[in-house]
Design a protein around this nucleic acid. Sequence first.
DNA 1: AAACTACACAACCGCAGTTGT
DNA 2: TACAACTGCGGTTGTGTAGTT
Length: 321
Amino acid sequence: MLVFQSTMEGKREEIRKGPWKAEEDEVLINHVKKYGPRDWSSIRSKGLLHRTGKSCRLRWVNKLRPNLKNGCKFSLEEERVVIELQAQFGNKWARIATYLPGRTDNDVKNFWSSRQKRLARILQNSATPSSSNSKSHKTNREVSTFHDVPTLQAPKFTSSMEEELSSKAPSCSSSNMEKAGTIKMVPLPDLVNPKLLHFDTHFELTPYENYPCTDSQLQIPFPNIPQPQQDLTFSPDSQELLAGLEDPHFFDVFGPVDAPQLTNGAQLPVEESFLKPVRSFRNDVIVKEEYDNPVNPDAFFDDFPTDMFDHIEPLPSPSDW
DNA sequence: AAACTACACAACCGCAGTTGT
DNA sequence: TACAACTGCGGTTGTGTAGTT
């Protein structure tokens, strides 16, 4: 798509919009190689591309930057990280994305948006049983839960790092990421309170460029987080979920959880069984027995209205640590 | 096989913060 | 200090695709 924009000199310049062509990508990549990921506006002023600087930057950040997990669906670990961090930070997608190597804020945002829509639909269906019954089919996503130990990394990507990587790092295709083996340390951003997250910052980390897509290869301990008691489980249909929301003692099942405890890094009581891998469920497959008798408390978080986290106090700012 | 639905993804827009002049 | 340009972020929309009926 081409649109025309008047310049300060009164000239009409064409601005290209819409999907990027391979040639445009090439021009953009060459520009970054020469000048680094900056001066986006100069790309147009030099006549290299009929794109706005904004558009160029977005294209680079979301698609062309090295080590992006393009084409990789969010792993269960990543999903859980997003859910946890969204509860902590709110819709700070860029911030959340710093914990997810290879993911952009746009990725996180899209993931969350999809998830919200899914939840909304589930709730709507639950509110109107007739409609939910009429639609017998259920997408696998609706019954998915988290089971694997999630990963949490917090890389700090600087422009210089990008420039360096752009010259030598391979793109993060599914195949080469799945071949990933050993890893290097990635610094946690200063916003992370290691105590809070119960992090061992000396564990092995997957290298950025080899970050695996597959769940089984991401086995960095996730911080213990308050979990619901095991006897509080929800069927994927969210019927119990809705009932639970109406229960005035609903949140009692969380036990005495409050923000100060969290910020002090206090170990919250977590049922041992919660930390065990429940099953090697992946790719949205679930067996009927588990569906009928959900025992994994993570399902609680998965199909839960995000509003539930509103009662959790925001974390202190990093400067307070 | 066609129609429908849900989902994932790409890209745009507006706003706010930062930086340079 | 004021202004403009640049940059980054979050919200939103449009489109292609896979799965289901």
